[in-house]
Amino acid sequence: MPIVEVENLDVRHGDVHAVNGVSFAAEAGAVTAVLGPNGAGKTSTIDCLEGYRAPSNGTVRVCGLDPVRDHAALTRRIGVMLQAGGLHSAIRPVEALRLFAAFYDRPRDPGELLELVGLTDRARAPWRTLSGGEQQRLSLALAIIGRPDVVFLDEPTSGVDVTGRQLIRDLIRELRNDGAGVVLTSHDLSEVEEVADHLVIIEAGRVIASGSVNELLASAADAVTFRADPGLDVASLAAAVDAPVAEVSPGAYRVDTAPSPRTVAAITSWLAERNLLIGDLSAGRERLESLFLRLVAEAEARPAGDPAQGSGRRGRRRGGRSAGAR
C-alpha cells in the first residue's frame, strides 16, 4: 500500500492554477523523485503533502492521514527538509538537534546524528556561519531525528559539495533500506538517476510522465548526441544520416538512430563539409537529463488541454527540428 497518495490534486493561488490534476503514489522503502522545471508545481504539491497548504481540489493522503485535518498526528510520522533556512541564525547544530529530539517520542541520538552527517567538528558553530552544504546536512539530520515513516526533502543537495553529496546520497539510501518512504524534489538529474527508484515529472502543473527510473529510461531510445553551433540545418543533416535529427536545446543535437560507426562517420563528415566544430559527441542510451528535457519540451509544444499525461512509456516524436528549443 502506498505511503503517499495524491489524487487529482488541484492547487490554485488566486488566478494561477499551480497544480492541475496531479496524481501519483509513493511507496514505503522507495525513493520517489518529483522533477520539473521551476514553477512547474513541485513545491505546491509537496506543501500539500506536508500539510502547509490545503488542496483546492482532489485528495492527498500521507500515511493514510489527511495532512491538514490530521496535522498533529502526521507530524509524528514525517520528517521535512526545507529548501533553505528554517533555523534561527544563532542556533548551534547540537542545540538544534537536542531541541528537535525533545519533540519526538523515540528520537535518534543527537551526537550520533552529528557524526552521521559529518558535523561533529561544527557542533557549536552558529547556523549562520555554516557553509551551504553544512546547513543542508544539518537540515537533513533534523528531518530524520524523529525516525519518520516518510521523509520530504526539497532539493537536498543544492549548494552541497561533492563529498557532502555522497554523504547525503548514502543517507537517503539508508533511510530507504530501513523502510522509510523518501519523497524528494531535485534539479540535479544525475543525482536523481543515482538515488531515485520512482520518478514523477511535472510540467505546468501536470504530470507528464511517471514510472520507475528503469521503465522511463527503457523508453529512452538509442541516440547519437553532439554539440555544435546552434541553428544548423537539421533537415539536411537528417537526409545525410538517414535518421531523424532534432536540436533539443540551442546547440545540442540528437540523432535518433542506433549508434553505429557509420552514423557517427556520416555526422562528422556532414559537419566537416561545412567546416563546423563538434563537441560532446556521445553515442548510446539517452540519459535521464536528455529524457527529461525532451519530455518537458514535448509537453510545452503540445497544445493546451491535451490530456496526455501520466503514462509510464511514451511514444517519441520524430522529424526535423521538432522538440521546441527555447
Binding site: 506536508e50 500539510g51 502547509y52 498533529a72 507530524t75 509524528r76 514525517i78 521535512v80 526545507l82 533553505a84 533556512g85 528554517g86 533555523l87 534561527h88 541564525s89 528537535f100 519533540f103 519526538y104 533534523l142 524523529g146
Partner: peptide, 18 residues
Amino acid sequence: GFERHYGVLKRLGATPLG
C-alpha cells in the same frame, strides 16, 4: 518577525511541537 522570515516557524510547523 525574523523567525517567520527565515522559515523557522514553517520548519517548526512540521514537527510535533505544534
